[in-house]
Design a protein around this nucleic acid. Structure first.
Length: 569
RNA sequence: UGGGGCGUAGCCAAGUGGUAAGGCAGCGGCCUUUGGAGCCGCGAUUCGGAGGUUCGAGUCCUCCCGCCCCAGCCA
């Protein structure tokens, strides 16, 4: 299989060669406190991808050490997203909470070794004692309690004898270490909170730093891949593992993903949801996996993206165009072509007989002829895209204009012979055209050169649809740099794109689309890729055929539009 | 100004002492019944900078500059 080389694989190759490990076992360890986003997808593809390529295994583990922020809704969504992306954790779905008992035993080991102590300092005092980046910390007055006293106090913490925040269990390391993580980090805090899995069994909960490395160790992880900000924590994880004398995974850090015109922190995404900036975690404008899915992205396109962007330790900001191109590359090969008119303009073919309907042949996918052909109805009255007509065409405009000829895709060559306007508003309401009967698609005369080809739909046969035209959520490249503080109304500072969603009703799509189901993806010829939104789902008691006006498409991504570029310049 | 990282084209990213891959974006052209797709061509005398080692340096050494992360009882 094609392996993408990167520094992580180099390290693994080396470890394998040196015999440090003889298998590869990775894990994807999300905290169930929000929905997964495209940045997590990078990590998922990395971890599961490496496991696959090295014939190893990858676990799914929920790092659920903070019951105040975690919910089952999130664990369900995470499982769905990982599965949807195409990865399988087999029977290896774990929770850090599975290890709470073991972690407690490990803590006892450290206490008995004199390497951990119960501290009575409160949060503020701990901060004061910690020192700063440039000043050393100082020892807590409780640092030298006896093992017996620590054992007793820790057991009582666990039994619930003390209120939240009153005491902690701390590792006894080095209060003057230049690495703040080594200044006697907190291992346990008292939290009388109900955990989504362990209920009220515990009222002390392990800190991430205390749980993570040991969880990896317990699972026999060989390569613990995480993001850059944990680089400073590695010495601490190593210290715990060494003091405990247990299996030692190798931690490797990589740079997290940043994408232009969006944000990638769960905190910001949560804020967007809570402030009603978007319609939930799966809003098609969100960079969440569920949002991308609803938008019409495919798992293949996301995996391709992960592959293309690579992995390194350099902070980076990937242009969304890379993501969009991955999608186009995938959908171009697979999406059935279809004709749809989003902003209809009526067109009458004056010399076409009344009442006649022709069934024309159309190719379902020129990139894949095995997808066959279909029939589409053609008649005297048609709709075309408003943008495909200009009364005063600019230079190089290949479409329809007064006196000009254009090809109707799969049909005939027509010529515009008249423009009908609303006498009051001056708005163009109808085009009068003539067609050349000799130019029917496939006939010898149809080979005639015409500048442009446009798409169309026969309204008397068409299905009605609503189209949700999505654009980027933010209008600035790096919205994380904006002021997100409460009350700052960052939307008012032009950082949120006011046109990120345009709902267009009264669109006409070719008749076959009436049978489309949610999540089906199509290419609307000459426009872009669209997918059927979940809102199209008929009510439970409503037959699929009867959902007038309830066919909703999301614009996933536009086609490359070289004309748009030309016109702009 | 403590500690940990990172600097190769507009954005990513290969490169592991032997003469700068690839992708996206951009720009030309060809082709086309999607202004789609496809195809062809164009960009780094130079790798943050300056010195040094070497026959030879993006790769090794020294110094300097810039950017990111760390002072949660979050993860």
């Amino acid at each position: 299989m094609p392996e993408r080389k990167n520094f992580i694989r180099d390290i693994i190759d080396d470890d394998l060669k040196m015999g440090k490990y003889n298998t590869v076992h990775t894990r994807f360890p999300p905290e169930p406190n929000g929905y997964l986003h495209i940045g997590h997808a990078k990590s998922i593809c990395l971890n599961f991808g490496i496991a696959n390529d090295y014939n190893g295994l990858c676990n799914l583990r929920f790092d659920d050490t903070n019951p105040t922020k975690e919910e089952v809704e999130y664990v369900e969504s995470i499982k769905e997203d990982v599965r949807w992306l195409g990865f399988d954790w087999g029977d290896r779905m774990f929770y850090a909470s599975d290890y709470f008992d073991q972690l407690y035993e490990y803590a006892m080991v450290l206490i008995k070794k004199g390497k951990a102590y119960v501290d009575d300092l409160n949060a503020d005092q701990i901060r004061e004692y910690r020192g700063t980046l440039t000043e050393p910390g100082k020892n807590s007055p409780y640092r030298n309690r006896t093992v017996e006293e620590n054992l007793d106090l820790f057991e009582r913490m666990c039994k619930g004898e003390f209120p939240d925040g009153s005491r902690t269990l701390r590792a006894k390391i080095d209060m003057v270490s230049p690495n703040l993580n080594m200044r006697d980090p907190v291992m346990y805090r008292i939290l009388h909170a109900t955990h989504h899995r362990t209920g009220d069994k515990w009222c002390i909960y392990p800190m991430y730093d205390w749980a993570h490395g040991q969880s990896d160790s317990i699972e026999g992880i060989t390569h613990s891949i995480c993001t850059l900000e944990f680089e400073d924590h590695r010495p601490l994880y190593n210290w715990f593992l060494d003091e405990l004398g247990i299996h030692h995974p190798r931690q490797i850090e990589f740079a997290r993903l940043n994408l232009t015109y969006t944000v990638m922190s769960k905190r910001r995404l949560l804020q967007l949801v809570q402030e009603g900036r978007v319609n939930g975690w799966d809003d098609p404008r969100m960079p969440t996996i569920s949002g991308l899915r609803r938008r019409g992205y495919t798992p293949e396109s996301i995996r391709l993206f992960a592959d293309r962007i690579g992995v390194s330790k350099a902070d980076s900001m990937i242009d969304v165009s890379v993501l969009e191109d991955c999608l186009r590359a995938d959908l171009n090969k697979r999406a059935p072509r279809v004709m749809a008119v989003i902003h209809p303009l009526k067109l009458i073919i004056e010399n076409y007989p009344d009442g006649v309907v022709e069934e024309l042949d159309a190719v379902n996918n020129p990139e894949d002829t095995s997808m066959g052909t279909r029939k589409i109805p053609f008649s005297k009255v048609l709709y075309i895209e408003q943008d495909d007509f200009r009364e005063n065409p600019p230079k190089k405009y290949f479409r329809l204009s007064p006196g000009a000829e254009v090809r109707l895709r799969y049909a005939y060559i027509i010529k515009c012979v008249g423009v009908v306007k609303d006498p009051k508003t001056g708005e163009i309401v109808e085009l009068r055209c003539t067609y050349d009967p000799e130019t029917k698609s496939g006939s010898p005369q149809s080979a005639r050169k015409v500048k442009g080809t446009i798409h169309w739909v026969s309204p008397q046969h068409a299905a009605d649809a609503e189209v949700r035209v999505y654009d980027r959520l933010f209008s600035v490249k790096d919205p994380s740099g904006e002021n997100w503080s409460e009350g700052s109304r960052f939307a008012g500072k032009d950082s949120i794109n006011p046109n990120s969603l345009e709902v267009v009703k009264g669109c006409k799509v070719e008749p076959g689309l009436a049978a489309a189901k949610p999540q089906d993806r199509f290419q609307f010829e000459r426009l872009g890729y669209y997918c059927v939104d979940d809102d199209s789902q008929p009510k439970a008691d409503e037959p699929l055929a009867q959902r007038p006006g309830n066919l909703i498409f999301n614009r996933t991504v536009t086609l490359r539009d070289t004309w748009a570029k030309v016109e702009k310049s």
